[in-house]
Amino acid sequence: MTALVQSLPALPPALYSGPELYNKLPTLGEADEAFTPEARTILVSQVGDLLASFGALWGLCLVHAHCSLEVGETMLGRGNISQPEKDVKLGEVFPERWLADGRPYEFNVDKSQPPPAALVTQFNTLISEMGLSGTLGLYYVGDKVPEVVLERTEGRANIIEVVTGPVDGGSSIQTGWASIKGQAGMPVTMACVINCDSRITRNAAVHKGTRSHT
């Protein structure tokens, strides 16, 4: 199967880690443009089957950076806030999002489980066939039921809140999908959408006022 678009974000070289790795991630706009409607139609269902076969503990995410990290910083979630933190001890926090090759790029203080090697291998093979290894990754769902949340950006912090009302899908960008537990073969469901005035999420100034839900 050939790639559906000509120019795609590349998977950062294996030697990159920490802030260096994070700063090599595509912007939201770059990732969204690469994951074309044609690719979504094909992949969302196939990845949904794969995730369901591993207990639906992990979801599919559109890999992108929220901002630039400085030396010694880690993008870390605490409660409903995710933001860069300095001198984080990785043994005391847990990976929350992974690139297609299994490298973590965002973390959380809540416990998580890394995707097993078999899932990473199958996932990476599946999306590599379409040239999307640098665009799509995995995120930890755990035992949570996927719910809709709104996210706003204040400076370099992303703040989320659960919502129950409708969300304007016309100006939204889907950035995550979670498999429905116990329903193997079902398409994955939308898990995260971002509404924003500018899709260059690496720049906190233009990312101000961004909305997303997961």
Rank of each mutant, 00 (worst) to 15 (best):
T2D: 09
A3E: 06
A3Y: 04
P9Y: 04
P12K: 07
P13A: 15
P13Y: 10
A14V: 08
L15Q: 11
S17E: 13
S17R: 14
S17D: 14
P19C: 11
P19R: 06
P19T: 07
E20F: 12
L21R: 02
L25A: 06
L25R: 07
P26H: 07
E30G: 09
A34G: 05
T36P: 07
T36A: 08
P37N: 04
P37M: 04
R40T: 03
R40P: 04
T41E: 14
V44I: 14
G48P: 01
D49H: 06
F54C: 05
G55D: 01
A56G: 10
L57S: 03
L57P: 00
W58R: 03
G59Q: 00
L60D: 00
L60N: 00
C61W: 03
C61F: 03
V63L: 06
H64E: 09
H64L: 07
A65T: 03
A65V: 05
H66D: 08
C67N: 05
C67A: 03
S68D: 04
G72F: 11
G72R: 15
E73M: 13
L76P: 02
G77H: 01
G79A: 08
N80C: 11
S82G: 10
S82M: 13
E85G: 04
E85Q: 13
K86D: 10
V88M: 10
K89S: 10
G91W: 06
E92T: 13
W98C: 05
W98E: 04
L99A: 04
G102E: 08
R103N: 10
E106K: 06
V109I: 15
D110N: 13
S112L: 02
P116N: 11
A118I: 12
L119C: 09
L119Q: 06
N124F: 09
N124T: 08
L126S: 02
S128L: 05
M130Y: 09
G131P: 10
G134D: 02
L138G: 03
Y140V: 03
D143L: 12
K144L: 15
E147C: 11
V148L: 14
V149L: 13
L150Q: 11
E151K: 10
E151R: 08
R152I: 15
R152A: 10
A157Y: 02
N158P: 00
I160W: 08
E161G: 09
V162R: 15
G165N: 13
P166E: 15
V167C: 09
V167S: 08
G170P: 00
S171V: 15
Q174K: 10
Q174R: 10
T175W: 01
A178V: 01
I180C: 01
Q183C: 09
A184N: 06
M190G: 11
C192H: 08
N195D: 13
D197K: 15
T201G: 06
R202G: 07
R202S: 12
N203S: 10
A205M: 13
V206R: 09
H207A: 12
K208S: 07
K208A: 12
G209Q: 03
R211T: 14
S212W: 06
T214H: 11
